[in-house]
């Protein structure tokens, strides 16, 4: 198999694009996909300070490298979940990577917030992946707003987005379908959120990370064994192999034809957000989800024999 650009021996075959690239040309393909996403959706304006949410995995570290190389002002934020056998490696990967690039990185430790994930898991009878996601989103948003970052970037890839869209579609969750996309505009109490990697699959990013020597964590989270997204990703992987381009078609056609319908529906729906009475961040209830989690964890800790 030969590289489409220079005809050298290919290292990466991409059936969805009906093409292949050598190690030297492949990173240009990945960079062009990110550049195209940023440009098409006007994700980053000149002068924007970009906060990148980093987990230590391939996607967020590759995103950091790409945005940095594209000339954007990048700062990393890592949330240390305090999960044994996982969080130490994830944090070390982030710290090592940012030190190597000479870029600033801030670490928020959930343990210091009284919200170490093993403690939360032992106290709350809800799927831990959902609770963990809520906590991470809260601290990423809070840090961005309190420190003057105009954009919050995440490493969500095409597989993440397709899985999420599929999950929302299975439930016909009109509310989530109304605003799913690569850009979520800033709103009162919410930073602008962007997903510049949304055009790239996990496979494409894994190849890029390997070829660029990104030292990322490979092992998965030990608590994610029952998460539903890997199931959806497996289904879509099988579909993509039989129907090349199915993922990107499902997602891009939703953005073009589906989302506007749900967005129009959402405009007529009354779902006002108001400041949380405890922390002040927007919520549809009196007290936001994160403050309710904090209260539940603290209450369980105060109860004997729990």
């Amino acid at each position: 198999m030969k590289c489409r650009k220079c005809k050298a021996l290919a290292a990466v075959a991409l059936p969805s694009h009906n093409t292949a690239f050598c190690p030297d040309c492949y990173p240009d393909f990945v960079r062009s996909q990110v550049e195209r996403a940023v440009h098409r959706h006007k994700m980053i304006a000149p002068g924007d300070r970009v906060l990148v949410a980093v987990s230590g995995g391939k996607d967020s570290l590759a995103l950091t490298l790409l945005l940095h190389e594209l000339g954007h002002d990048v700062h990393g934020l890592h949330v240390d979940l305090d999960i044994p056998g996982s969080s130490t490696d994830a944090r070390a990967a982030c710290e090592g990577f940012f030190a190597k690039l000479g870029l600033p990185l801030t670490v928020v430790e959930l343990r210091r917030e009284g919200l170490a994930i093993p403690l939360v898991k032992s106290r709350i009878k809800r799927p831990i992946c959902s609770v963990c996601g809520k906590l991470k989103r809260h601290y990423f948003n809070k840090f961005a707003l309190e420190n003057g970052y105009s954009v919050l970037a995440t490493g969500h890839n095409l597989d993440d987005e397709v899985s999420r869209l599929f999950a929302n579609t299975i439930r016909w969750d009109a509310s989530y379908l109304s605003d799913q996309g690569p850009v979520l505009p800033a709103a009162d109490g919410f930073a602008r959120k962007i997903k510049p990697m949304y055009r790239l699959t996990e496979f494409e990013i894994a190849n890029f990370s390997f070829l660029r020597g990104i030292d990322h964590v490979i092992a998965g989270c030990p608590y994610s064994g029952r998460a539903s997204f890997p199931v959806y990703k497996g289904l879509w992987s099988g579909l993509e192999e039989r129907m090349h381009g199915a993922k990107v078609q499902f997602y891009e056609n939703f953005l073009r034809d589906g989302r506007p319908v749900f967005a129009a529906w959402a405009e007529h729906r009354e779902d006002p957000l108001s400041p949380c009475t405890v922390c002040g961040y927007p919520t549809s209830a009196a007290v936001c989800g994160v403050c309710r989690i904090k209260t539940m964890v603290a209450a369980a800790s105060d109860t004997p024999n729990t």
Partner: peptide, 8 residues
């Protein structure tokens, strides 16, 4: 052989 699906 390195699988690429992230698990959280």
């Amino acid at each position: 052989v390195r699988t690429v699906t992230s698990r959280g």
